[in-house]
């Protein structure tokens, strides 16, 4: 706790570490030593600032709403029909002839203050101390979906095949082999940039530093690690009378974005 010494932070870290430990213990049974060791190693490290925090930057200027990411994500983990780990929202607004449409890809934000982790009763959802990713250990999860309600971004869902909670895991099986996530790989506009937000030499870090970036639903305080360049914050729910705003998602039966 070198630089952030206020007690709230320390307590938080403490809670996290314990949480992690528990999850890792629960996990070690099958995964063997590798995972256990990996999970515990950086916990001994100092404050968050120096640790790896993987995240994503989505440069909306480059996003053409092509949905390649949506489908690439489906294919990568064989996500069943009716649910999605990542999707693209279309926001259409304006008055003829000044009408516009913008695109907003969404995925798990791998938050630094993840509400999903706090509510998970089993510790199945946890933050990986070595890279800040929020993952679900399906060997522990009971499928109660409490986490899904807690996430302010609606990115969690019940996988109808496994019957466990599911969401974007930042393609952890790819990145640890040195590959970019699947959605990043396919992104036509090269709008999605993946990397270690804390690493000053990484592309993502530099872009975040140089550009005006924003995150979504900041007020919920989860400190997301998915950043956007050129985010349009128009919301169909808060539009004024007479204003035309239409937000469409392609999620099953869910006109609302939650």
């Amino acid at each position: 706790m070198s630089d952030k010494s206020d007690s709230a932070v320390s307590r938080r870290k403490f809670l996290k570490t314990v949480g992690q430990g528990t999850a890792a213990v629960a996990t070690a049974g099958i995964a063997g030593g590798a995972m256990h060791a990996a999970a515990n190693k950086p916990a001994a490290d100092s404050g968050k600032k120096n640790t790896v925090q993987y995240g994503m930057l989505i440069d909306l200027r480059r996003c053409i709403g092509c949905q390649a990411c949506t489908v690439a994500c489906k294919a990568e983990a064989d996500v069943p029909m009716g649910v999605a780990r990542s999707w693209v929202e279309y926001v259409e607004k304006g008055r003829y002839p000044n009408a516009g449409r913008s695109f907003l890809p969404r995925l798990c934000n791998h938050c630094s203050e993840p509400h999903c982790v706090r509510v998970c009763p089993t510790g199945a959802t946890y933050e990986r101390p070595q890279d800040g990713l929020i993952v679900i250990d399906q060997g522990v999860c009971i499928g109660c979906l409490y986490c899904a309600h807690a996430c302010p971004y609606g990115v969690r869902f019940l996988n109808p095949v496994t019957r466990f909670a599911d969401k974007c895991d930042m393609c952890i099986h790819r990145i640890y082999k040195g590959l970019v996530p699947s959605c990043v790989n396919t992104c036509q506009g090269r709008a999605r940039i993946f990397g270690d937000v804390n690493d000053p030499n990484s592309e993502i870090h530099k872009l975040i530093a140089k550009n005006p970036v924003s995150v979504t639903r900041e007020t919920y305080g989860t400190q997301p690690n998915v950043y956007y360049i050129g985010l349009d914050t128009t919301d169909e729910n808060t539009k004024k009378p007479g204003q035309y705003v239409r937000v469409t998602t392609n999620k099953a039966n869910s006109p609302k974005r939650t």
Partner: peptide, 10 residues
């Protein structure tokens, strides 16, 4: 009701 209304804002 809780589920069909959600956080507002982008």
């Amino acid at each position: 009701g809780g589920q069909i209304t959600g956080p507002i804002g982008i």
